[in-house]
Design a protein around this nucleic acid. Sequence first.
DNA 1: TCAATCCTGAAGCTATCGTTACAAGCTAGA
DNA 2: TCTAGCTTGTAACGATAGCTTCAGGATTGA
Lengths: 289, 289
Amino acid sequence: MKRSTIVKDRLADMAADLTPAERQVSDVLLRDYPVAGLTSITRLAEAAGVSTPTVIRLARKLGYGGFPDLQAALRDEASAQIRTPILKRDGWPENRSDSPAFQDFAQAVFANLEGTIDRLDPASFDRIAACLADPARHVVLSGGRITRSNADYLFNHLQIIRPGVTLLSPSANVWPQYLLDMGPETVLVIFDIRRYERDLFRLAEIAKAQKAEIVLFTDQWGSPVTKLSDHVVNALIEVPSSWDSTLAINLIAEALIAEVQTRRWEDAKTRIERLEDMFKTTKLFRKQN
Amino acid sequence: MKRSTIVKDRLADMAADLTPAERQVSDVLLRDYPVAGLTSITRLAEAAGVSTPTVIRLARKLGYGGFPDLQAALRDEASAQIRTPILKRDGWPENRSDSPAFQDFAQAVFANLEGTIDRLDPASFDRIAACLADPARHVVLSGGRITRSNADYLFNHLQIIRPGVTLLSPSANVWPQYLLDMGPETVLVIFDIRRYERDLFRLAEIAKAQKAEIVLFTDQWGSPVTKLSDHVVNALIEVPSSWDSTLAINLIAEALIAEVQTRRWEDAKTRIERLEDMFKTTKLFRKQN
DNA sequence: TCAATCCTGAAGCTATCGTTACAAGCTAGA
DNA sequence: TCTAGCTTGTAACGATAGCTTCAGGATTGA
């Protein structure tokens, strides 16, 4: 019989050959499997009411070199059990000829999206949506070197849904004039992932001093702006590339757009209809060219 | 702020106050959470590439008396996570109070991403990457009302990696001057999802007449530009919202960026280093403000 | 009852762990 | 450029873990 790599199976296989004291250890292990085995040998022995050598003898009987080996096996199992299914999804299309690099990349992105949703506080999401949906508030968006694209994306949609949306220019030297008009009714949305940008921090500082409400989209480590922010979205951004992936940020941005749109459906509807009309008009003009 | 008993939450709360080395530890912990923390402090430190005192400092910062305390907390969490019945582990993180709308949205996005990857022809992906990585080619990008953000995103990154990248202005009336310079060495990247834009089609027509190679990012139904394009990426964009989700387009764009970067690593490396230098210089300038 | 065998824990040893103290290195601001 | 403060790793230390040895105790069969 080939020896199973699963500790639980080995315990079952050897059950008949175990001594009473060893069985007590086995019981404790199985009661909170596999985490129970992840303490020190001393504590495990105490929990089972036996001595430490007994635990070692059990580990050896199961085919491990010693207790640390057994523990490593248990740790691997715990890890495998806890990992969310999407990570180890057997759903990855077989018979595909994607490069391993592409597959790794895609896997990482999925893990990031999942992890980001996992960390997102639903209540916080609601509050952000409420800010952005409030027509009385003025929304100002700003991003950094890379994240300006994300800011642009959110801006692009928000602007269609509601009035009073401004995208700050990437160059910081024109910001002061916008800062002039910021007050308690302003919602400042900042995108700042590593490497965090000093200018954005200063922007947040001044805006905060003027009582603006700050929404921050950042990475898992958190921009310094975090401590100035009223609402923070932490997105996972690491992928097997020398670039960071801002896909998770866009996911939340899109979800917010959908939510905001729902909240102010009546207003947005007419607004969009008017917009469509204008586009049609523009097109007519162009036909003359 | 009441201190959460969940290590993950504490990490998130403190994220902004962590030092770079501590962040590395945090990273390792979260990557295989919570099991990664169940080794010895030495191994954890090694895995994170830091020294053991750093791990202890992190543990203290999170409010634990020392590493063993932190580890005990992690073990409890691992135990709790594994004990929970297989609940709805399939797919959605358990015990979350997300609105159904948000869940539906996220589910749809995941389905879109998977479907998009599924439809993507690896060979085609490679050919597109080859075009974009070829320094002899000139890359021109253009998007529509919504997709200009996607074009901007790809532009933003490509520009850092390689020279000869141009983003067309959203206003079609300045396109002709760019069209003047298009030839067989030009790669024109067009983003066009419903509602497809006539201007983009004309742009493609003229570019095609001048022998430019055309790469098209579109939706599952296919923009009219398809018939003029040499390479087409069809992304799924439907979500339960009155908006379309361009997340799948960004996924492919990001994957392409990673691939292009890999292909021209040597060149890109020095280019990025020079860029970093310039940014540092700019910072020095800014200090005078 | 006795002897042979097996089971078990106490005691001690060594390697490793977790911790502390301190100094070098780095960064930010003047 | 220089200084103050922060960050980080090195080195040294007790404490603990994991392991070995060995002897007491239980069990079994004659």
